[in-house]
């Protein structure tokens, strides 16, 4: 792929987004952002940078598409099954001791991992007393989450992930297949609170016993990573759990000393003070 939009033009676009829409991507890592922006520019066949820029500035529908396309919305159910096995075996028993369970999925995209968690809560008999807050900066992906309809072609993989994560049920009990789609049980979605939230600019809005933020921090620079982690720290009860993506770390952040990683290598930390 040829990169048509150079570094200087990327900075111009990022400044436009901030000035016109209040979306701040200036602390995102550039390599991925540059590739995503160039990919969209090619995909939508813009003849020039100035027309691309103008479309984003003046057409709020296109702006929404732009944000949804430059942020990564690839996710799957029970992503990294061993991680979910740890959640099932080590985190759920602790959550069970609470009268009421609040969980935040920050940057949840289309919500496959939120549904995964709801399924595990139901199997542990905890869903009734739980609320799963699902947030993302893209309103479009949250619409899909609310519907709970996912492409049927991925279900085989999800079903395998589910079994590897320690699931004992017949996975097909959780969805109804129709044409090329699988619609998940509405009882799962009933316990989800869905809202837009931007980790760059929005604040803490509740206290949780478990926060998931998986494969979001990799797109932030170190400074923004630290700010997001401080936001999670403010939003997490003492002895609460923070769950990150398979290649994400706490060790470079200012909150590191307040947390202890679970004994296996999974990326789950417990707030100890």
């Amino acid at each position: 792929m040829e990169f048509e939009i150079n570094d200087e033009e990327i900075e111009i676009l990022l400044q436009d987004l901030l000035d016109n829409y209040g979306y701040d991507f200036t602390d995102y890592s550039r390599a991925s952002l540059k590739r995503r922006i160039n990919r969209l520019f090619m995909l939508d066949k813009f003849p020039s940078f100035s027309l691309f820029r103008k479309q984003i500035q003046t057409d709020s529908t296109y702006f929404r598409r732009f944000v949804e396309e430059i942020t990564v919305n690839v996710t799957e159910m029970f992503r990294d099954p061993a991680f979910y096995r740890t959640v099932r075996e080590e985190v759920l028993p602790v959550l069970a001791t609470h009268p009421f369970i609040r969980i935040w999925h920050a940057g949840c995209s289309t919500g496959e991992e939120v549904y995964s968690m709801a399924i595990m809560l139901q199997e542990a008999g905890l869903l009734k007393k739980s609320l799963l807050y699902a947030t993302d900066l893209n309103p479009g992906v949250l619409d899909r989450l609310r519907k709970g309809i996912f492409p049927l072609r991925f279900i085989k993989q999800y079903s395998e992930n589910y079994i590897q994560s320690g699931g004992k049920e017949d996975f097909s009990r959780y969805y109804t297949a129709k044409y090329d789609w699988a619609k998940f049980d509405e009882q799962l979605a009933a316990k989800m609170v869905v809202a837009t939230h931007n980790l760059v600019s929005d604040r803490s809005f509740n206290e949780f016993q478990l926060i998931f933020c998986r494969n979001v921090l990799i797109y932030f620079d170190r400074n923004l990573q630290d700010r997001a982690l401080q936001l999670f720290d403010e939003s997490l009860d003492t002895l609460g759990f923070l769950a990150l993506g398979a290649k994400e770390q706490l060790k470079y952040s200012s909150i590191y000393k307040k947390y202890r990683q679970l004994d296996n290598k999974d990326r789950i930390w417990r707030k100890i003070t």
Partner: peptide, 9 residues
């Protein structure tokens, strides 16, 4: 000259 990760398509 640092690494970045990306889980896009």
């Amino acid at each position: 000259h640092s690494f970045s990760l990306d889980v896009s398509e």
